Simulated scan of single mutants.
Amino acid sequence: MLNHWNEMSVLMTRYDYEYSIFQKLIELLNFYLNKHSKCLVVRFDLTFPLNYMSVAINVLISSFTQKLIQKYKRQGLDPFYIWAREQNTSDHPHYHFALLLNGHKIESFSHVFMNAQSLWASTLGVDVSGQVHYCIGEKYYKNYANGIMIEMYHDEAQAKYDAVICQLSYLAKIKDKRDYGDPWRNFGMSRLE
Results as ranks from 00 to 15, higher is better:
44 F>C: 02
47 T>K: 13
48 F>M: 01
48 F>L: 06
49 P>H: 09
50 L>T: 09
51 N>S: 14
54 S>P: 11
54 S>V: 11
54 S>Q: 14
55 V>E: 02
57 I>W: 11
58 N>A: 12
58 N>M: 10
61 I>L: 04
62 S>I: 13
62 S>E: 15
62 S>Q: 15
65 T>N: 08
66 Q>M: 14
66 Q>V: 12
67 K>G: 10
70 Q>E: 15
72 Y>Q: 00
73 K>M: 14
73 K>Y: 14
73 K>W: 12
74 R>C: 14
78 D>C: 04
78 D>P: 01
81 Y>L: 10
82 I>G: 11
83 W>A: 14
83 W>K: 07
83 W>N: 08
84 A>T: 02
85 R>W: 03
85 R>L: 10
88 N>R: 13
89 T>G: 10
90 S>R: 06
91 D>Q: 11
92 H>W: 10
92 H>S: 04
94 H>F: 00
95 Y>K: 01
96 H>N: 03
96 H>Q: 05
97 F>M: 04
101 L>K: 07
101 L>F: 05
102 N>G: 14
104 H>T: 04
108 S>A: 15
108 S>F: 13
110 S>N: 09
111 H>L: 07
111 H>W: 04
113 F>A: 06
113 F>W: 07
113 F>C: 05
115 N>D: 11
115 N>K: 04
118 S>L: 09
120 W>F: 08
121 A>T: 05
122 S>H: 06
123 T>C: 03
124 L>K: 08
125 G>D: 08
128 V>S: 07
129 S>L: 12
130 G>C: 03
130 G>D: 02
133 H>A: 10
137 G>C: 04
137 G>E: 09
137 G>I: 02
138 E>W: 08
140 Y>C: 01
144 Y>L: 12
145 A>Q: 14
145 A>I: 08
146 N>S: 02
146 N>Q: 04
146 N>E: 00
147 G>Y: 01
150 I>P: 02
151 E>S: 10
152 M>P: 11
153 Y>F: 09
153 Y>R: 03
153 Y>E: 06
155 D>M: 08
158 Q>C: 02
158 Q>P: 03
158 Q>V: 00
159 A>N: 04
161 Y>K: 01
163 A>D: 08
164 V>M: 02
167 Q>H: 11
167 Q>E: 09
169 S>M: 02
169 S>C: 03
170 Y>M: 05
171 L>Q: 07
171 L>W: 08
171 L>S: 08
174 I>R: 15
174 I>F: 14
176 D>E: 12
176 D>Y: 14
180 Y>W: 12
183 P>K: 05
185 R>P: 06
